[in-house]
Nucleic acid binder design. Structure first.
Lengths: 225, 225
DNA sequence: TAAAACTTTTAAGGCTTTTTTAAGGTTGAC
DNA sequence: GTCAACCTTAAAAAAGCCTTAAAAGTTTTA
């Protein structure tokens, strides 16, 4: 679950980041409106926490711009002003929820949960599929007594496969989510990592497969012999 | 251990800060009620020292507001008035302890210790992992007859590793928790200290390792030969 | 108050692991 | 059977990490 924080007050931004990372969200953090829009436009985030007052471009502009470009990532706006006109303006510009500073961490988490519930499942630390299980907080893949550690990219890719267990996920998707939207990785990079993953799956004697569907992508499948 | 001081009398605030930093607390300091509430709401502090008389919002209001928002950070209220009504009002509003000015630094420290002990946030004095044991109150790391003293930062990092024994803890996390939110320490600082720790672990002939997982962080591991 | 002792930061070279690249082999749809 | 897509692997390149020494900053001691 990826969150983008756009907040120029660095202290607050860091506190937010800590609150969220403690809850196992993956957090990116930028400090002005220009970067905020750039990052948000990637469309890879599950939520954007957006301050209203920002250098270069304010939160309303960013929200408006995103929606105009068909980026539907849920936006949680933050503002110091607790006035009704502002609230309306925020929601009109495309924000999905609104929160005034100061706020309690619980409230933040609750609102984020509400926003993300709408679209998908929250990633649990320990996930399983077929005959293996994967612990995201230790990055360990295991079946029975056997286990291996996955490195960063392997883990990211496996998480994606797990999160999309009943759809085919395309290589393009994997690239933008793991390498970043502006990376110049090619499909062979994904193929190489999928191959590494298969080897590790094999090493723990799992009979789960990462099936490849030509021209479409990958998907996890439990082989039922 | 992070402390927030909310006190408009800057001279006193500075003195408080000095007393606390000498004891290795990490201190943030603000001078009015508005900032006080903002900062306190972040929920990142272990104690809040709160003056009663403050510009914009008084201490009672702040305490009340915090509790209303489920922020349970212990509050130590400060006031010049030594009257019973005030005391009652302070504790009713959500404060956990109360101290009248002037006070002795010893008293301040004692009360803070009491407040942080209460929540059980403080680690047990003696903790172990694998084949070593660590005494948090003397900062001594030992295995069998051999032992070494850890300095402050080494000890803080080891405590974090111990507290996160079944997850990977990131360098970012270590930096914000040991160096503080607004520090500009880089990852190499952490690496250097981890290296010191490993040397000491080695010195006492422990076979426990601080494993590094690239791009992810560190984790304690008992090598099972 | 100066020296000594200790802590913390910084920086650089070397090492390890990850990541990319590239090339030859396989597969399966047409 | 052909061809594009995909797989696997080795090796090159890059990134991240470790360790160390020395500089800089602190605190303690004499």
């Amino acid at each position: 679950m990826q969150v983008l924080i756009v907040e120029d007050e660095k202290r607050l931004a860091k506190a937010l980041k800590q609150i969220l990372t403690e809850q196992k969200y993956m957090v990116d953090m930028v400090h002005d409106g220009r970067d905020g829009l750039d990052y948000a436009m990637s469309g890879i985030y599950d939520v954007i926490i957006l301050d209203v007052m920002l250098p270069y471009r304010d939160g309303f502009e960013i929200a408006y711009e995103l929606r105009k470009n068909k980026i539907e990532t849920p936006i949680l706006m933050l503002t110091a002003k607790d006035t009704v006109p502002d609230k309306v303006s925020g929601l009109n510009s495309g924000a999905d929820d609104y929160m005034t500073k100061p706020f309690a961490p619980e409230e933040l988490l609750a609102r984020i949960k509400a926003l993300t519930r709408r679209r998908g499942e929250v990633m649990l630390d320990e996930t399983g599929f077929g005959d293996f299980s994967f612990n995201a907080s230790t990055s360990e893949l295991s079946k029975g007594a056997k286990s291996v550690r996955l490195n960063f990219k392997e883990a990211e890719i496996l998480k994606l496969l797990l999160a999309n267990r009943d759809t085919i996920i395309s290589k393009e998707d994997i690239i933008t989510k793991v390498w970043g939207y502006d990376s110049d990785a090619g499909s062979n990079n994904v193929e190489a990592y999928v191959s590494f993953l298969r080897r590790k799956l094999n090493f723990i004697n799992s009979s789960t497969e990462i099936k490849s569907i030509k021209k479409m992508g990958y998907r996890l499948e439990q082989s039922h012999d």
